[in-house]
Amino acid sequence: MDYAIGHLNYWLIICVMMVGLYTLMSRGNLIKKVAGLNIFQTSVILFYVSLGKLQGGTAPIVSPEFVLYANPLPQVLMLTAIVVGVATTALGFALIVRIKEAYGSMDESEINRMDGTGT
């Protein structure tokens, strides 16, 4: 039990991740797919940020009043990852706009039918 509670943040992150993956796989609508992808990425960002968190730690600005600091590196890394995520989502949405123009649909199965690839 202690193990479960002690790792509560990880369990939550896994939940978010599964929600993302499930949306990604189950939805036929391409926008929802990309949204699912985004949630999936977010879970990893949460994972990194929670790595850096320290009970009672504070922002890493050196000051004589504090001894415990949170690790700043994961958060810095995640700034980059967020940028990457935004770029991916933007590109995905741009592609979907073009797909809508070309096919007149955003539904995966309809598009596949139009392309004549069975699955």
Binding site: L37, G92, I96, D115
Partner: peptide, 13 residues
């Protein structure tokens, strides 16, 4: 377009 989107999704995963 669809090929790129599929690659995007799988690649991002």
């Amino acid at each position: 377009l669809t090929a790129a989107l599929e690659y995007l999704i799988l690649g991002t995963i």
